[in-house]
């Protein structure tokens, strides 16, 4: 049961990084791929209906950690206190930026908030998890650089997949540039893990860059998403025995009764959530037309 809930939490974090990963990327890159207000708006509209739902994956992952592994939850967030504060500040300014930019006269402040508020968490989540695994500043910076680059690539590919015209063209160029940066960073970052999924993630990132070169946007997006899944898998495999230094998984876990109850609740609710979130993506599956 403890192993199962560890897997559930790994799944929730994976979902979060895959989904919010492209939100962060789009948020950071929207000004870069647009030349006017309409294009900027179209770029952000690719994530408009879904980013808030994507963020709930984080809320759920953290809530599930609190319920299933209280000591892990408490230890993780009190240890990485200031980075987590900055993540929260980032998510705050990004969230209000996205919601408010269409309702203000001059969206400059909102756009700034979206860029900064996307880049900070994209960097810090990598830094936090790298620091958790290896300790020290250098691995943290490398881990942060890695997730920042991967989110940029993932977001650029998503933009190319979901838009038309000049925005799509620029997004492809940005994606190629992001790929060129991501691959060497990934070689350094993932080789320190060295496990099979980490190496496969490296290959997936290379494949994504090649696929976007060949204009296979759908497949390229599958590859970046796959790379994030594999990386998260590699990280959680390392955490499986000791989710925090000096804490075993069994020590961190809630009692069997609570885990059983959580299992039932998860089994009942998750299928519905996956269906209606999937339906959202289906409703908004059309490319966003960029006005000429």
């Amino acid at each position: 049961m403890i192993e199962l809930w560890f897997a559930v939490i790994a799944f929730l974090w994976t979902g979060y990084f895959v989904l919010e990963g492209f939100d962060f990327g789009v948020g950071m890159l929207a000004p870069l791929v647009s030349r006017n207000a309409a294009e900027q708006r179209a770029g952000l509209e690719t994530i408009g209906p879904v980013w808030d739902g994507n963020e709930v994956w984080l809320i759920t992952a953290v809530g599930a950690m609190f319920a299933a592994f209280p000591a892990w939850y408490a230890g993780l967030f009190s240890t990485f206190y200031l980075p987590v504060v900055l993540v929260l500040a980032g998510l705050i300014v990004r969230g209000v930026g996205l919601e408010w930019r269409g309702k203000v006269t001059n969206p400059l402040w909102c756009d700034l908030g979206i860029v900064v508020g996307s880049a900070i968490p994209a960097f810090l989540w990598g830094a936090i998890f790298a620091s958790l695994l290896f300790g020290g500043v250098a691995p943290a910076l490398l881990g942060g650089a890695f997730t920042l680059a991967v989110c940029a690539l993932h977001g650029a590919v998503f933009l190319a997949l979901r838009t038309t015209g000049p925005v799509r063209r620029r997004a492809r160029t940005v994606a190629l540039a992001a790929g060129a940066v991501t691959i060497p960073v990934a070689v350094f970052a993932l080789s320190s893990l060295g496990t099979a999924p980490a190496l496969a993630a490296m290959a997936a990132l290379a494949a994504a860059t090649a696929l976007i070169w060949r204009r296979r946007e759908g497949w390229a997006f599958t590859a970046t998403a796959g790379a994030i899944v594999l990386t998260t898998l590699a990280v959680f495999m390392e955490l499986r025995v000791r989710p925090l230094p000096g804490l075993t998984l069994a020590e961190a876990a809630s009692g069997p009764y609570t885990l059983t109850m959580l299992t039932w609740i998860g089994l009942i609710t998750l299928p519905f959530i996956l269906v209606y979130q999937g339906w959202t993506y289906w409703v908004f599956r059309k490319r966003i037309k960029v006005p000429a």
């Binding site: 599930a64 319920a67 609570t258 959530i273």
Partner: peptide
Amino acid sequence: GDVFGAPLAMEAL
């Protein structure tokens, strides 16, 4: 956490 976390997780789900 064992008690208090469950409603929080349910709230999210």
